[in-house]
Design a protein around this nucleic acid. Structure first.
Length: 647
DNA sequence: ACAGTTACGA
């Protein structure tokens, strides 16, 4: 293994000289004394052909390598991803007196960034005395992309203090740094400040900087700010459009994303969507479960020849699966010639959300045997699949192999999967033990998983412990309070229910109300329990009441424990009958009379009563019903659900 | 010479 050696022993300082005098190494030989062997041209052409090893061999025989030779060698090392060769080139460059060349320092920083060698990036930056703006920018780029945003902002302040002017590149990296901060503290304010600097320096129509701003606001979830920057851009290109579409798609505004995509198509100018654009558009279709819309987009992708681009294919697989058509996703996946880890992961998680844990594990194994190494996300996907299918032993085994065979250190996400897996299977004590033994701080996801399990198994005592931590970690997440209130209600602890409700009120939180979507003839309809706008609401209610009566006679028992009020039984029945998924089922029955599968999407987890109601109806009405809740799919057929009660 | 947008999970 290579160890980090000190390169030289000069004290580092931040130079503010902005001179552009070309650098000359101290030991240059004049042209007349050049040795007879000059390999520079050969080394350069070997680098360009990717024959790095041969180039290095020649380098050892070349007494006077030039700056350009080193430049190409450095690029080649990054290209070949060879850290050991990088060290050889770097050493050689120092020995030949180029260690203070700011041009090569810039190249070295970029190379070491590519090679993931953070110590060397710092070392080169620190030891280069004449820090040109290029050197600063390269360092900022590496740190920002590595997520050390705060350090960049600190250095930026220092730069301003010693009077080094920023250029357009500096601004893009510093803006990126605002969202790349390691601490949880939001640097939105800082970002807005820099936004002001940018405007003050007359960059308001600079397409790169403005696009970076759109992206920055998008990542902070400030959709309004992003769109106002976008709208004020005098010139836009595909990248700016893509950034804005991605902003909508990622911030729970899929309809707006599709709308903007339509606007882009209608612009009819020379800006055409590219593969990056299409990925975000597919994401929007996936979150809406807009299958028909997604198929149209797929057609467009085929026509534009974007169907061989890996990210696009992965997004297609996910889109089909999340729209409920697993078979189409499978077909797209099976036709892939080359698969990267992301493509495999999308297929694994597709099986997972459809409750086919066995298939997910199979595909996972196929991936490994085809020579693709699993990523941390592969394990999140496959462990999630195990959890959805109740494959406890398999999940345990995979978790262990992740650490021992694949050398992946578990993250909070992995622990959350394990807690979920064990918790659902009513091995709550073991789940709690996992949390106890964690070597990292269990985040909200982990406590959330535990609380969810307590909900399923009615464990009040542990729920109180989990929620106590959860309320500290994310005091403004209303969902957690609702979960705890659910658990109290189920245990008929009405005073505690009231206490939690008061807490929610006191903190001014709004609980997310249930909402369902259903696509009828390529249009998407939304239904909520406080439905007032649907003109057919009376017809829906009438149908529900009719079904309710008939099903009760056949043995359906309403599950009213989910109601958070201490009311009479019939009153509770009335409330659960109004749940949005039941309205959506009835809406589907009314509109989709050809006997096709009814597809519904829900924004929250399915409640117990709706689950058993839909099971009943699938048999009673002889219809297949597919419901996607926040976590997974439920495929109701002939009185049975594909989730086998794991959800 | 250094730049902006994208996929897989919760």
């Amino acid at each position: 293994m290579w160890t980090l050696q000190p390169l030289n022993f000069r004290v580092s300082s931040y130079s503010h000289h902005q001179t552009t005098v070309a650098f000359r190494p101290s030991t240059t030989t004049s042209p007349s004394t050049l040795s007879t062997t000059n390999h520079n041209a050969s080394i350069q052409s070997l680098c360009e052909k990717g024959q790095l090893k041969k180039a290095l061999k020649l380098l050892s025989h070349e007494p006077n390598p030039t700056q350009h030779t080193y430049e190409l060698l450095i690029l080649s090392c990054a290209d070949q991803r060879s850290l050991s060769d990088a060290f050889i080139v770097h050493r050689n460059l120092i020995d030949n007196g180029f260690d203070q060349d700011p041009f090569l320092a810039t190249k070295l920083i970029n190379m070491y960034y590519e090679l993931d060698c953070i110590d060397r990036v710092r070392q080169v930056f620190d030891e280069t005395l004449k820090k040109t703006i290029y050197v600063w920018n390269a360092f900022f780029r590496a740190l920002s992309l590595w997520g050390h945003g705060e350090e960049v902002l600190g250095l930026y302040r220092r730069m301003n203090r010693i009077g080094i002017p920023s250029d357009r590149f500096t601004y893009t990296y510093v803006l990126k740094a605002c969202v790349a901060a390691e601490s949880l503290a939001s640097l939105l304010q800082k970002g807005k400040e820099i936004h002001a600097h940018v405007l003050r320096h007359g960059y308001e129509s600079h397409i790169h900087i403005m696009t970076t701003l759109v992206d920055m606001y998008a990542r902070f979830g400030c959709v309004e700010d992003a769109s106002s920057v976008f709208n004020e851009m005098p010139v836009k290109n595909v990248v700016s459009w893509s950034a804005m579409i991605a902003c909508y798609a990622k911030n729970g505004k899929p309809l707006e994303a599709l709308e903007l995509f339509r606007a882009l198509m209608l612009e009819n100018c020379d800006t055409l969507p590219n593969s990056v654009t299409m990925v975000s558009v597919l994401q929007a279709c996936a979150s809406l479960a807009a299958l028909e819309q997604g198929k149209l987009i797929h057609g467009y992708i085929l026509r534009k020849g974007l169907d061989s681009i890996l990210p696009v294919i992965s997004a297609l697989v996910t889109m089909y699966a999340r729209c409920g058509d697993l078979e189409l996703g499978q077909r797209v996946f099976s036709q892939m010639e080359k698969r990267d880890v992301v493509a495999w992961n999308s297929m694994i998680s597709s099986y997972g959300i459809h409750g086919l844990g066995g298939k997910a594990i199979e595909v996972f194994k196929e991936m490994v045997s085809s020579g693709v190494s699993p990523s941390p996300i592969s394990f999140v996907s496959v462990l999630g699949a195990c959890s959805h299918s109740g494959l406890i032993e398999e999940g345990r085994y995979l978790f262990e192999s992740m650490v021992k065979e694949h050398g992946i250190t578990p993250t909070v996400e992995h622990y959350a999967c394990m807690v979920d897996l064990l918790g659902r299977a009513n091995q709550i004590d073991e789940a709690a033990k996992i949390i106890q033994d964690m070597r990292i701080e269990p985040g909200p996801k982990v406590w959330g998983s535990l609380l969810g399990s307590c909900r399923i198994h009615g464990n009040v005592e542990l729920a109180e412990r989990a929620s106590k931590r959860l309320f500290e970690l994310e005091p403004r997440n209303a969902g957690n309070y609702v979960l705890l209130a659910d658990i109290y209600a189920e245990a008929e602890m009405w005073n505690e229910v009231k206490r939690v409700k008061k807490l929610v009120e006191a903190r001014g939180l709004q609980k997310v109300s249930g909402c369902c979507w259903i696509e009828v003839e390529r249009k998407i309809y939304s239904l909520t329990s406080v439905e007032e706008f649907n003109p057919q609401i009376e017809q829906i209610h009438a149908l529900l009441i009719k079904l309710f009566m008939e099903m009760k006679e056949k043995g359906y028992v309403p599950e009213t424990k989910v109601v958070l009020y201490d009311l009479e039984a019939d009153e509770k029945e009335r409330i659960v009958l109004g749940h949005s998924e039941k309205l959506a089922v009835a809406f589907g029955l009314i509109h989709n009379c050809k006997g096709e599968t009814i597809r519904i999407t829900k924004n929250l987890r399915l409640c117990e009563d709706c689950h058993s109601f839909t099971k009943f109806i699938s048999k009673f009405a002889g219809r297949e019903i597919l419901v996607r809740d926040v976590n997974r799919f439920h495929h109701f057929k002939n009185g049975v659900c594909s989730c086998a009660e794991y959800w």
